[in-house]
Amino acid sequence: MGLIFAASASLVACGSLNGASTSIASIVTPYKIDIVQGNFVSQEQAAAVTPGMSRVQVRDILGTPLLSSIFHADRWDYVFTFKRQGLAPQARKVTVFFKDDALERIEADALPTEAEFVASLDSGRQAGKVPVLEMPPESLTAAPAPIKTVEPTPLPPLPASYPPLEPVAR
């Protein structure tokens, strides 16, 4: 009888521990890194691309396309995604169309400027407290201590001949 009571008590204890660990796990969330994938294209880059440019010129400005297909040889796709914990994912697409190796047109989602994109990378992050300098500024401008030079000691002379790398056959 005592054995049955001990077994049922341990099962009840396991169930309550499981419920406690689940409630703790729902409070604590793991850290998830920011995920940046693809080619970021800014407003400035898209504005610099003009019809009539060659493929090489477009590649110099926008970078290598993320997607280029043999089935769509006259089309390059630049896809960019940015995922950050707690924020909605950002996704942008820029498509470049060529005709006879010259840029015909460019189609793009609303693109941010470079400054706006850099500001979005830092949004939501709290700046830490700036550490206090441990060395007073006067000592930073003071004359440095003289450097002590040490004369190198000469190495022993090398042997006149080295032993053979392979055993000598006799």
Rank of each mutant, 00 (worst) to 15 (best):
M1P: 11
F5C: 03
A6I: 08
A7V: 10
A9C: 05
S10L: 12
L11Q: 02
L11F: 07
V12W: 06
A13Y: 04
N18C: 10
S21R: 08
I24K: 08
I27V: 12
V28W: 13
Y31G: 01
I35S: 15
N39Y: 03
S42I: 07
Q45L: 10
A46P: 08
A46Q: 13
M53Y: 03
V58P: 05
I61S: 07
I61R: 02
S68V: 03
S69A: 08
A73K: 10
W76R: 01
W76P: 01
D77P: 00
D77C: 02
V79H: 14
F80V: 02
F80D: 01
T81N: 11
T81G: 08
F82H: 15
K83P: 01
K83E: 15
Q85Y: 09
G86T: 02
A88H: 11
P89T: 02
A91H: 14
K93R: 15
F98S: 05
K99L: 05
D100Q: 13
A102G: 03
E114C: 00
A115L: 09
E116A: 14
L121C: 07
L121H: 04
D122H: 07
R125Q: 10
A127N: 02
G128W: 04
G128K: 04
P131I: 08
P136L: 11
P136N: 11
L140V: 06
A145N: 09
A145V: 00
P154W: 01
A160C: 03
A160W: 10
S161T: 15
Y162I: 01
P164Y: 07
E166F: 12
P167D: 10
A169S: 13
A169W: 06
